[in-house]
Design a protein around this nucleic acid. Sequence first.
DNA 1: TCATTATATGGTTAATTTGCCAAACAAGCA
DNA 2: TGCTTGTTTGGCAAATTAACCATATAATGA
Lengths: 111, 111
Amino acid sequence: MKRQPPNARELALIVAKANILKALGHPTRLWMAEQLADGEKCVCELAEFIDADFSTISKHLSVLKQAGVVEDEKRGKQVYYRLKVPCILKYLPCVEAVIKANVQEQIEMLA
Amino acid sequence: MKRQPPNARELALIVAKANILKALGHPTRLWMAEQLADGEKCVCELAEFIDADFSTISKHLSVLKQAGVVEDEKRGKQVYYRLKVPCILKYLPCVEAVIKANVQEQIEMLA
DNA sequence: TCATTATATGGTTAATTTGCCAAACAAGCA
DNA sequence: TGCTTGTTTGGCAAATTAACCATATAATGA
């Protein structure tokens, strides 16, 4: 029955949530987050399989950090990143369900 | 131990997932998706509390549809939208946990 | 058929994002 | 100290996105 315009507090929460989703809404960043599922990795480890400039990778990591998805720690010459709230990846099966539903639909459309 | 560059299939999946997250990564669109949690709504019902042009609202809905998050159905003069895979909202508590962690950190920083 | 209501589309502009390069930093080593 | 390695920052151009306005379409009712 709730039928009201979002108030300022609700709005702020929505904006905050959308920001986090947006941060994960880029292939490179999502991949990075997934790589961190089984523990922290340094930038160089993440960079190893990404075909992009180091500066680009660094900026993507800073977007994730800004959003609060990851945190970093410098140890020696390297900077290690880890997920701050690991449940953030638990979602992805459902996201995949969306994809499956879409594919299914395409198939039906062709049938 | 997995330490390999993503292959084409994995890459395609990542891109697809990121797209869905991106679609939800906008305050207006996230709000809309949340409104659909308890059942379909027509565009006019959604528009009622969004301060934006109708065309803008329509475009946001089409982004969600494109991403496969919602589906629409025309009945009479109205178009109804509903979540296609409702679990997509189950995630949000964890997203909120990220926010809480960030806020907590800010507080500690000020203490 | 004409007007009206509900929604979508096309076009345009401003804002944001992405990615590269070059340069700056920071830590450890020679 | 100066060199090298790992990472970040600043600057810029290209691409993408968001929002608005005006216009188009679709269904209904007069």
